[in-house]
């Protein structure tokens, strides 16, 4: 009985699971890629950047398929809107991650030695925020009561990232070895870029939180 009802929707479920897997990989590639950049491992960084491009393309393909199947399987209209909302906003997270890596590969900011641990920690916090969002999204589809727990972690890591962002910016502008304002502004620009995935993840989490409340029995 259960397999009869679920057979039609299993394709859609697989697509959604694959899409969430892609988002998870993106956060890991973002973190590892940035680590390579900081450690001057240019070739490895380029490989990760290529991986990110491939993941972004894969996410787009999956998003398109999910959209198509969402409409052809005639879900409850409200659920369809919610799923679509999650898929679309998660895509923005992938886009931001790719954009940051792209800008790093083009602009190649020269990050002073003593600021590198801060940048590295910031990228790790951004990645952690996305990973918690991924867990919240999985829970939304299968175990709704856990969504709020993961969303709380998203808020926690995003807040930590915000604090570190401010502290890093202060260090940049107080740095005695950086003579030019243009360099300081360039470094600040990348602090803002690296923290962007965590901001984006938080806004998806807020949306997810509302959807979860709506679906709670």
């Amino acid at each position: 009985m259960s397999s009869f009802f679920s057979s039609k929707s299993s394709d859609l479920q697989n697509l959604i699971n694959k899409y969430i897997d892609v988002i998870e990989k993106c956060s890991l590639v973002f973190k590892e890629g940035f680590k390579c950049y900081i450690n001057w491992q240019e070739e490895r960084f380029t490989n990760y950047y290529k991986d990110m491009i491939a993941l972004e393309n894969r996410a787009d393909e999956l998003r398109h398929d999910i959209k198509f199947k969402l409409y052809s399987y005639m879900l409850i209209p409200e659920s369809r809107g919610d799923v679509l909302g999650i898929i679309e906003t998660l895509d923005d997270v992938v886009d931001v991650c790719k954009k940051v890596m792209e800008q790093l590969s083009i602009e190649k900011p020269d990050i002073p030695e003593n600021l590198r641990p801060g940048y590295l920690e910031l990228s790790e916090l951004s990645s952690k925020t996305i990973l918690e969002l991924v867990k919240a999204t999985r829970a939304f589809f299968t175990e709704i009561k856990l969504v709020e727990n993961y969303i709380n972690k998203v808020h926690f890591y995003e807040h930590e990232a915000d604090k570190l962002e401010e502290s890093l910016k202060r260090k940049i502008f107080e740095h005695r070895d950086i003579a030019y304002l243009s360099v300081k502004m360039h470094l600040r620009y990348f602090v803002e870029k690296i923290v962007l995935p965590s901001d984006m993840a938080e806004s998806v989490a807020e949306r997810l939180s509302v959807y979860a409340i709506k679906r709670r029995l």
């Binding site: 009802f5 679920s6 929707s9 859609l12 479920q13 409850i76 799923v83 589809f141 175990e143 029995l217």
Partner: peptide
């Protein structure tokens, strides 16, 4: 019925898409 359904949903971890299909039928 609510308690039974709630217990089932919490324990079974049925995917939202499957649950929607069941609900519609």
């Amino acid at each position: 019925l609510f308690k039974v359904v709630q217990h089932f949903i919490n324990k079974s971890k049925v995917h939202m898409i499957t649950l929607d299909t069941w609900t519609r039928y």
